[in-house]
Amino acid sequence: VTTQPGYPVPDRGATFAGADVEQLPLLEENGFLIDLDAVPKETWERAAILWLNYPNNPTGAVAPVQFLHRAAELSREYAFLLACDEAYSELWFDTPPHSALEVRAEGNVAVFNTLSKRSSMTGYRSGFVAASIVAWNDEEHVERTRDAYRRKREALLPTLAGKGVRVAGGGATMFLWLEVPGDEPSEEFAARLLEHGLIVSPGTFFGSAGEGYWRMALVPTEAECRGAAEILEHAL
């Protein structure tokens, strides 16, 4: 069981392994959380793994601890693995997010993390032990990383607000999850921005539930993010 809009790798991995995949929608009216108690009992009875990703890519949403408690309870009740991808757990702007580690004793919980986001060490993961030990023990560079993403975010938000673009997602990860202005399909909107030299991801890249949204990644330099704000000023 996976969620969408979402990072596509859990779906593809399950498909390659010959498993059936059921996608549950993340809706803005639910804070981009699964409505766990609205999921049919039959789905939980058939489930082997429930993949959660909070802080969430692409929406930036974070999960309240009560949500994690309920997910862990369900994993115990129906004997499935609650697999939590927490790659963005240390990229937040206001309040540190909760972790499924807080509810690990309540169910069948496995939490996955990586150096690729907190330490900008994509490809190292934790398999490279020497690099991992150094990076996991150093919190100063993580604070610098968070501050860099915060500055990039703040470089874009005034222009987006001035153009009436609503931030639909939450306050974590390295992404901005935004509502497409008007009724323009998200892929057409992204293509129009591309004509101005700005690359963004249409919401449908993350599943059909992403229609009506688009994602900006805060990975370029701060100067490039300010340049993106100038492009948006003229393109929107």
Rank of each mutant, 00 (worst) to 15 (best):
T221G: 13
N30M: 00
S126T: 07
E42I: 00
Q66I: 02
V219H: 15
V129W: 13
I34A: 10
Q23K: 14
H141T: 15
E188C: 01
R151Q: 08
T159V: 12
E106Q: 14
R104K: 10
L36R: 02
G207Y: 00
E140V: 12
G197S: 05
R150Y: 06
G123H: 03
P40G: 05
A17G: 07
V103Y: 14
E29Y: 04
M174L: 08
F175H: 14
R46S: 11
E154L: 11
N30T: 04
T2S: 08
V134K: 15
S116C: 10
L81C: 09
P181E: 09
L115Y: 05
A161T: 15
V134T: 06
V165H: 12
G203C: 04
E195K: 11
E195S: 13
T114R: 03
T204Y: 06
A48Q: 15
A79R: 04
R151N: 07
L115A: 06
A161P: 01
A48W: 14
A209N: 06
L27M: 01
E187Q: 14
T95Y: 12
G197R: 05
R12P: 09
V129I: 10
R153Q: 10
T95K: 11
E28H: 13
V219Q: 15
R46T: 07
H141R: 10
L198M: 10
E143F: 15
L52V: 14
A229W: 13
D35A: 09
E211H: 09
A168Y: 14
T59H: 04
A148S: 08
A191N: 07
H196T: 02
K152P: 08
V142Y: 05
L82T: 06
Y149M: 12
A61L: 03
F206C: 02
Y54V: 12
E195M: 01
H196P: 02
Y78N: 01
A235G: 05
T95E: 14
P181C: 00
G212D: 04
W136L: 15
G182K: 03
L91S: 05
V39D: 02
L176G: 08
A105I: 02
N108R: 06
R118P: 00
A17E: 14
G31Y: 01
A209D: 09
A235R: 08
A190W: 00
G162R: 03
Y54E: 09
L176Y: 12
E179L: 00
A47R: 06
F112K: 00
A130W: 02
M121T: 02
F80A: 06
S120W: 07
F93M: 03
A87P: 08
E86V: 07
Y78V: 04
L101M: 11
G107S: 04
A131Y: 08
A209I: 00
I231G: 07
A235W: 11
K41W: 02
E187V: 15
V65S: 14
R166L: 12
M216F: 11
M174Q: 15
L194Q: 00
A161Y: 13
S186G: 11
G107Q: 03
E179H: 13
N57D: 06
G6I: 00
G203N: 07
G203V: 03
A135C: 05
V111G: 02
P64R: 09
H196V: 04
A72H: 12
S126F: 15
A63I: 00
E230G: 11
N56R: 01
R226Y: 08
A135I: 00
L74E: 05
A14W: 10
